Simulated assay, not measured.
Amino acid sequence: MADCVCVVSEFRAGNFRRVSFEVASEGRRVADALGLPLYGIAVGSGVSDKAEELGFYGVDKVFVADDAALEHYVAETYVPVMAEIIQGLNPAAILLPASVDGKDLSARLAARLQAGLAQDCTEVVCENGVLKAKRPIFAGKCLAWCEWSQGALPMISCRPNVMDCKAADASRKAAVEKVDAAVPEARSRALSVDLDTSGKVELTEAEIIVSGGRGMKGPENFTILEELARELGAAVGASRAAVDAGWRPHSDQVGQTGKVVNPNLYIAVGISGAIQHLAGMGSSKFIVAVNKDPEAPIFSKADFGVVEDLFNFVPVFTEEVRVLKSTC
């Protein structure tokens, strides 16, 4: 008989990433459906002071491994520590983020714990005590429902910005228990982490993204998208064509070989809509496409389409946003 539902958080640069709260919220729903408590795992350097915040989103108790050697994600240190904690909890299911680090972590943990991993899931349901998880396959062209055989330990990595996040309840703080887990000496280590300090919104956590493609015609023209993004409080992304041309850094690339994003609003400007790009943004809640070619594939995926030269439309649209903001 399982004792809990377990969620794994992601702690970076002194704070929990938003996806940790989304996973905690989803874990709360699963735990309630199974009639079990929800336990969280927080690993990092300085995480003890923040651990109780997971309780705002439904976690009952947080098991913390706080060590200077865990400041940066390194598989050789994180996986043994987390596996040791999880093995002592006897969970009915494990949920964790499908972030860049989370995908690596979940695969390694699943192998070590002999768990059945459903990666990059967009929906989790519990029917009569049986868990099911939905995940995109074949570059997002199909959706598969996953179930686990009797006796298997379900492990579910949740796609960021998809699961409904509970409203934070600051009066509900989680109990915190520090775990004296032995941190192994790794053969590799992070020498430094190049964090973007320019004030830009991180793509994978942005609620609004404005992306440009080959239709931008050059790197200098991305300034019009950056101006629109500033007015909307959005992040700026790019298609693979724009990145391959050297117009934007790879960190801005959205798509199968770039970042998978799930904002509330995705504005695709001058992007034709190749399947590789759709795989990276197709699950956005609302998609707006701006392209002068009415036959562009992006329109088949868009909720709203604008058939117009982007150089005529975007500046006017930006000004309308600015005017609207001034009247609110």
Score class of each variant (00 low, 15 high):
Met1Val: 10
Ala2Arg: 07
Cys6Gln: 08
Val8Thr: 13
Ser9Thr: 12
Phe11Asp: 00
Arg12Ser: 15
Arg18Lys: 15
Ser20Glu: 05
Glu22Thr: 13
Glu26Val: 13
Gly27Leu: 10
Val30Arg: 01
Val30Pro: 05
Asp32Trp: 09
Leu34Pro: 03
Gly44Leu: 05
Ser45Ala: 12
Ser45Tyr: 01
Ser48Pro: 09
Glu53Ala: 03
Leu54Arg: 04
Val62Leu: 03
Ala65Gly: 00
Ala65Lys: 03
Leu70Glu: 05
His72Ser: 08
Val74Asp: 04
Val74Pro: 02
Tyr78Glu: 11
Met82Asp: 00
Ile86Thr: 05
Gln87Thr: 14
Asn90Phe: 08
Ala92His: 01
Ser99Arg: 01
Ser99Asn: 07
Ala111Gln: 08
Gln114Thr: 15
Ala115Pro: 07
Leu117Gly: 03
Ala118Met: 09
Thr122Ala: 07
Val124Ser: 02
Val124Asp: 00
Val124Met: 06
Val125Phe: 11
Cys126Val: 15
Cys126Thr: 15
Gly129Trp: 05
Val130Phe: 12
Lys132Ile: 13
Phe138Ser: 07
Ala139Val: 04
Lys141His: 12
Lys141Asn: 13
Cys142Trp: 12
Cys142Asn: 15
Trp145Phe: 15
Pro154Val: 12
Ser157His: 12
Met163Val: 14
Ala168Gln: 06
Ala168Asn: 03
Arg172Trp: 08
Ala175Asn: 00
Val176Phe: 02
Val176Trp: 04
Asp180Leu: 10
Ala186Thr: 06
Leu191Phe: 00
Ser192Pro: 04
Ser192Asp: 03
Asp194Ala: 13
Asp194Gly: 04
Ser198Asn: 11
Gly199Ser: 03
Leu203Ile: 10
Ala206Phe: 06
Glu207Tyr: 08
Glu207Val: 11
Arg214Phe: 04
Gly218Lys: 04
Ile224Lys: 10
Glu227His: 12
Leu228Ile: 08
Glu231Met: 03
Ala234Ile: 02
Val236Gln: 02
Gly237Asn: 12
Ala238Trp: 05
Ala238Val: 10
Ala238Gly: 14
Ala242Glu: 05
Arg248Gly: 09
Pro249Leu: 12
Pro249Ala: 14
Asp252Pro: 06
Gly258Val: 09
Val260Trp: 04
Val260Met: 11
Asn264Phe: 07
Leu265Cys: 02
Leu265Ile: 11
Ser272Gln: 02
Ala274His: 09
Ser283Leu: 13
Ser284Trp: 01
Ser284Leu: 01
Lys285Pro: 06
Ala289Gly: 07
Val290Phe: 05
Val290Ser: 11
Asn291Tyr: 06
Glu295Ser: 12
Pro297Val: 06
Ile298Gly: 00
Val306Ile: 15
Val307Ser: 14
Val307Glu: 10
Glu308His: 14
Phe313Trp: 08
Thr318Met: 06
Glu319Cys: 10
Glu320Val: 12
